[in-house]
Computed example of a mutant assay.
Amino acid sequence: MTDGIGLLIFLALSLLLVLLTVMQRKRSYTLRELLAFQRLRRAIGLAVEDGKRIHVALGRGNLLSENFGSALIGLGVLKRLSSVALIADHPPIATSGEGGLMLLAQTGLQAAHQRFGLPPQDLPQKAQLVGVTPLSFAVGSGMEIRDERVAVDLLIGHLGSEAALICDASHQQGNLSIAGSDDLTAQAVFAAAASHPLFGEEAYAAVAYMDGEAVHRASLQTQDLARWAIILFLIFASVVKLIGL
């Protein structure tokens, strides 16, 4: 019974997502403005003009763990940044703390090169495995921030308290840092140390804010509608219980 209800909800949400995607292509769904992404769009242009890099820290999310969802968002952000800044003198770089993430990042950068008709050069230097433990990952990312003329740091993925070291390295270089994670400890660190922390679903909405594709905006609209449906159901169930039905 429970499995059947879960399958029904999944099918209903999938159908809603498809319908909203079609509607998005006809009329765009307006997202609420987030200062972090306003600053990011401006910073990308300035970094390209100044010949500086954008750094994406993908974290340590394992491909087979429940923490991989936030890492996928980081990979999506890297893909969008590559589409914008790949032709710059210093294209974006990515650091990760897990081998699978490194390979996926290199694959994404290779696809971006092919899309622009550019030879995929120096992929191991543009997407690196800088450490497999939390501390080594933080130290390795900090070294890249200091050595690679980085102007913008995006920390999106599964990170923990080691994120404080990365934010500190970014702050020492005077960089703009935008950070989001699925880990509560990392979110607390970002609230204190990042230029623009992303909390909760703000991190998961990063791709939609950066590229504006219909399917990504529709996914946010689907989440909003599902959230309201759950709220109304809880209110209805509470009222029914109070009146004794």
Rank of each mutant, 00 (worst) to 15 (best):
L15I: 15
L20Y: 02
A226N: 11
P92G: 11
M143H: 11
Q187I: 08
E33T: 14
V18Y: 09
S82I: 12
V152T: 10
D183H: 08
H171C: 11
R42W: 06
L242N: 03
F116G: 12
L46I: 15
V240I: 12
R80I: 12
V152Y: 05
V239T: 04
L75C: 04
L103G: 03
A186S: 06
A208D: 03
P197G: 04
L58V: 04
S28C: 12
G45I: 11
I9C: 09
G108P: 07
A203R: 01
Q187C: 08
S28G: 10
A163N: 00
G59M: 00
G99W: 02
S83D: 12
G100M: 08
Q24N: 12
L123F: 12
I5P: 01
I9F: 09
T185G: 09
S177E: 03
L198S: 04
G4V: 08
K241L: 13
S14I: 10
D153S: 14
R32L: 08
G200T: 10
F137C: 05
D122H: 15
K26G: 15
S65Y: 07
L31Y: 03
A192S: 13
F37A: 05
L109Y: 09
S28V: 15
E98D: 13
Q125A: 15
A138E: 01
T185C: 08
G131I: 02
N175K: 03
V77N: 01
L72N: 13
A218M: 03
T107F: 13
T2E: 00
I5W: 02
V215N: 08
Q121H: 12
L8W: 05
V48A: 15
G108I: 15
R39Y: 05
A192R: 13
G200P: 07
L154I: 10
L19N: 03
A105H: 02
A127L: 13
G59V: 00
L35R: 14
I5M: 08
F233T: 10
A229T: 14
I73Y: 00
L64C: 11
V139F: 03
L198V: 04
A88V: 10
G51W: 12
A203H: 01
S96F: 01
T133D: 09
E98A: 07
F10M: 15
L19E: 06
Y29C: 06
S181A: 09
L40Y: 07
A237F: 09
I178Y: 01
N62F: 11
I178S: 02
R39M: 11
F37W: 11
S238H: 05
W228L: 14
V139A: 07
S181Q: 03
I44N: 07
L31W: 03
A186Q: 01
G6W: 09
A57H: 01
L17P: 04
D50N: 14
E202G: 05
L20K: 02
Q110W: 11
R41I: 05
P91V: 06
S96P: 06
A47E: 13
G59A: 00
M210W: 02
E213R: 12
P119K: 14
G174K: 04
N175G: 05
H216L: 01
R115P: 06
